[in-house]
């Protein structure tokens, strides 16, 4: 069955790293170039913008609540 094949594949693959750790291809060039920092910076900026937006919504709601209470 397709699924059993997949499962046995995964068991096999899970055992593999203990045998040969170095063969696995990782994004090492991206790291040694230092280009990974570009990715991280972009993501941080996106996150920062979203969070600042969220903070501003929070403040607006707060202001509305205050105004409502004073009425």
């Amino acid at each position: 069955m397709e699924r059993n094949k997949l499962i046995s594949l995964f068991v096999l693959l899970a055992l593999l790293p203990s045998v040969s750790m170095a063969d696995v291809e990782m994004a090492d060039t991206l790291r040694s170039d230092g280009k990974i920092y570009v990715v991280v910076t972009v993501l941080c900026i996106v996150l920062a913008v979203i969070l600042i937006y969220l903070f501003s919504i929070d403040r607006k709601v707060k202001r509305m609540e205050d105004r409502f209470k004073n009425k």
């Binding site: 693959l13 593999l16 790293p17 696995v24 994004a27």
Partner: peptide
């Protein structure tokens, strides 16, 4: 992260 086949990064 640990280097695992298939999963990679």
């Amino acid at each position: 992260v640990p280097a695992l086949p298939i999963l990679n990064e």
